[in-house]
Amino acid sequence: MSLVWDKDTQRILGAQMMSKHDISETLSLISLCIQNQNTIEFLGMYDTMFQPNFDRPFNYVNLLAQAAVAKEDKKVSK
C-alpha cells in the first residue's frame, strides 16, 4: 500500500494497493477522499464503521494514513 498526497496541503491525490482479498470498500473510500479533497490527517482518524474486529480501533487504511502523517511530521521537525 502507498498513498500519494500534496506536500503543501496534505490532500490525498492517489493510492496504490494490492491484495489477494476484496479491498473495493477501501478503494472506494480513497476515491471519495480524493473527490472531497480530504487530507491524510482526515483519513488517519476517519471512523470507517465497517471494521469486523472491534478490538482494533483503526483498520489498515487508517494506519496507512497515520504513517503518512508521521512521515510529514518528521519532515517538519527537522
Rank of each mutant, 00 (worst) to 15 (best):
K75G: 09
T26Y: 01
E72D: 13
C33D: 01
Q51P: 00
L64E: 12
Q16C: 04
V4W: 04
S77K: 09
N59G: 02
C33N: 09
L63N: 13
K78N: 13
F42A: 09
K74I: 15
R56K: 07
V76E: 10
G14L: 06
R56P: 01
Q10H: 14
L64K: 08
F54A: 06
L29M: 04
D73F: 06
V76K: 13
S77T: 11
M18N: 01
D47E: 10
P57T: 07
M45Y: 01
L63F: 09
L29W: 02
N36F: 07
F50W: 11
Q16S: 01
D22H: 08
A65H: 10
K74H: 01
N36Y: 05
L63V: 05
D6S: 09
M1W: 09
D55M: 11
S24R: 04
F54K: 11
N36K: 11
F42M: 07
M49W: 07
F58Q: 15
H21V: 00
N36D: 14
A15D: 11
L29F: 04
R11P: 03
G14E: 07
S2G: 15
N53I: 03
I40Q: 12
L27C: 03
V69M: 01
Y60T: 15
L27T: 03
H21P: 01
N53M: 08
T39G: 14
N59P: 02
K74T: 06
V4I: 13
I23P: 00
G14H: 12
A67K: 12
N38V: 00
G44W: 03
M18G: 01
A70G: 05
P52T: 09
K75H: 11
L43M: 15
F50V: 04
T48L: 06
M18C: 12
Y46H: 12
Q66N: 14
I30A: 04
N53D: 10
E41Y: 03
W5R: 02
N62Y: 04
K71T: 14
Q10C: 05
V4Q: 04
T9S: 14
K71H: 15
K78P: 08
Q16A: 06
Q51L: 08
G44L: 10
Q35G: 07
Q51K: 06
T9M: 09
F42T: 00
